[in-house]
Deep mutational scan, measured.
Amino acid sequence: MAAGGDHGSPDSYRSPLASRYASPEMCFVFSDRYKFRTWRQLWLWLAEAEQTLGLPITDEQIQEMKSNLENIDFKMAAEEEKRLRHDVMAHVHTFGHCCPKAAGIIHLGATSCYVGDNTDLIILRNALDLLLPKLARVISRLADFAKERASLPTLGFTHFQPAQLTTVGKRCCLWIQDLCMDLQNLKRVRDDLRFRGVKGTTGTQASFLQLFEGDDHKVEQLDKMVTEKAGFKRAFIITGQTYTRKVDIEVLSVLASLGASVHKICTDIRLLANLKEMEEPFEKQQIGSSAMPYKRNPMRSERCCSLARHLMTLVMDPLQTASVQWFERTLDDSANRRICLAEAFLTADTILNTLQNISEGLVVYPKVIERRIRQELPFMATENIIMAMVKAGGSRQDCHEKIRVLSQQAASVVKQEGGDNDLIERIQVDAYFSPIHSQLDHLLDPSSFTGRASQQVQRFLEEEVYPLLKPYESVMKVKAELCL
């Protein structure tokens, strides 16, 4: 049975990233139509530049190519590739079939990587351009969430054990800070992308030097003109047959890092959902379990974690691919890159769409948070109580021993009897502590235990987050809708 299948058929496997999760716009960027249309555009740009620099290419040939950029006979191309065992030459023939007058000058002087690699770089750039505003929107939604809850005390956790208090907004800023680093890295790697350009079979530009009869300047002009037509500021000066596969490492490393950030955020949300302090959106008709109707599973956060793990592992592909590119190139890269580049971007696209949807509907339960604080705060307040007693004339050592005994009794009630923490009640009825009984409410005010959390939130948002989001103001209103 021949390899390949009808990918629109229910009898043929289709990647869930495309069929179930990723956005239509990201799927289109990695589609065959987008790819092969870009090949034709690159052939047109090459012909236009070659004509401008004096090669015998007519206006009629150029116009014929322009008129057929979208006229792609995919069936013919597939048949040609089956016959020739070469995808680029299959599309040269297919393009030439609908451009008979231009057929002889299509791909003039070029090698397969002229269309293959340059198209990949265009796709990487455009895919990054799709991700950047999506990530900015996630940051914006979380920034709104953090600002609104900047002063809401909550129990902090280290080692997932109760620690000092923080605020809900401050905790959210930990998430935002990681995503801001990801946004900066995505922008950097996007701006650092260079075009492969017009380089020939081993990167020496020998074929173009021959076409222009040894004119170095025209060869350099050709490279520059096509690079500018493709919208790049610069091209690699040095290439082998391909652009260095280190570029793929750079791009997928940034995406993998984004995956790590999203995994951490969504894990926190899942843990908070278990504590009943916070939940992701839950639709009115949504079913959490087929057997347990009360369940409210954090399905979206779980999906993000599941896909983020996949995204983090994909960076190993370009690392290994770059390491086995012998001399000017081997074909070890080809099949692998067809999979890992598309999957990385479709996965990143999915987790950003999902995280935006989550961040637009996060639900906080202040009463649950308050109750958990009441359970733990008495123990945390013991040092403040000791200091207040010393100020009232008591002995630190005597007070410490009193607190120690009462704390152990209260802990026994919590752990052995399943009761509430009654340390404060014990202190309130103990005559030894009568000098500070009137101060206990103040000493137990949760806001006095959150330090500068709310001020940190305000400063972080104003100095770091809002300036970073400013270039994306025009796209901030787009909502994230999930079908599944």
Results as ranks from 00 to 15, higher is better:
H7I: 11
T158C: 03
Q458T: 13
K229L: 07
A344Y: 03
W45V: 07
L132K: 11
L406K: 12
K147R: 10
T111Y: 00
K82E: 12
R125V: 09
I57F: 07
T321N: 10
L423Q: 05
T158Q: 00
H97V: 15
N297Y: 04
T58I: 13
F74T: 14
I403S: 05
C27R: 14
R337E: 00
K276G: 08
K101A: 11
P298L: 03
V138N: 09
K367P: 06
V363D: 06
A77S: 11
G231Y: 08
L484R: 15
G200S: 13
R37P: 00
N71E: 12
A308F: 03
K66D: 07
E280Q: 01
G240V: 01
S306P: 02
S140E: 14
S253K: 04
M312R: 04
N353L: 13
L142E: 05
V92D: 04
C340K: 03
V254Q: 08
D216C: 07
A335F: 06
C399E: 05
G156Y: 00
H217K: 07
G394D: 06
G214C: 11
H400R: 02
V88A: 08
V198C: 15
L440A: 09
L46D: 01
E376V: 05
D215I: 11
V138E: 14
L128T: 10
F160G: 07
Q41E: 11
G288L: 02
A410W: 05
Q184N: 11
E481H: 11
P16K: 10
L84H: 07
R20Q: 05
L174I: 09
A335N: 02
Q320C: 09
S19Y: 11
D215Q: 14
Q375L: 07
R33N: 04
Q205M: 13
D120F: 12
I139R: 02
E343R: 05
C483K: 09
Q241P: 00
L423W: 04
L346W: 07
K229G: 04
V219C: 06
V226I: 06
V475F: 14
I351W: 01
N118Q: 02
L193N: 03
T313F: 08
K82M: 10
D445Y: 08
E425V: 07
T350K: 06
N357P: 01
E64M: 08
R125S: 11
V475Q: 13
T158W: 00
H263Q: 04
Q241T: 01
L142F: 09
F327A: 12
L135R: 02
E425D: 13
Q325Y: 02
R171L: 02
N274R: 03
A260K: 03
Q409K: 12
S306R: 02
L468C: 14
A322N: 06
C304M: 13
T382W: 01
K295R: 00
P318F: 03
R20S: 03
F460W: 05
R245H: 00
V368D: 04
E79N: 10
G393K: 08
I176G: 03
S334Q: 05
H7W: 09
L17G: 07
T204N: 10
D223T: 07
R194K: 11
D441M: 07
L469A: 11
F157C: 06
D223W: 00
D87T: 00
I62T: 08
T347V: 08
L406E: 04
R309S: 06
M292E: 04
S112Q: 00
P16E: 06
H400G: 02
V414I: 13
D182C: 01
Q241G: 01
L377A: 03
E213P: 15
E60S: 11
M181A: 10
F30G: 00
C172N: 06
Q61A: 10
Q285R: 13
L355F: 12
A47N: 04
Q356W: 09
T313L: 10
N336F: 02
G5K: 15
D268P: 01
S19Q: 13
D441K: 11
A77Q: 14
M387V: 08
S323F: 02
V189K: 11
D117R: 00
K187A: 15
G394P: 08
N274K: 07
R14K: 15
D333F: 00
T450L: 06
R426G: 08
I369P: 04
Q408V: 08
K66M: 07
E80C: 13
D420A: 03
D32F: 11
K284L: 12
S9L: 13
A90G: 14
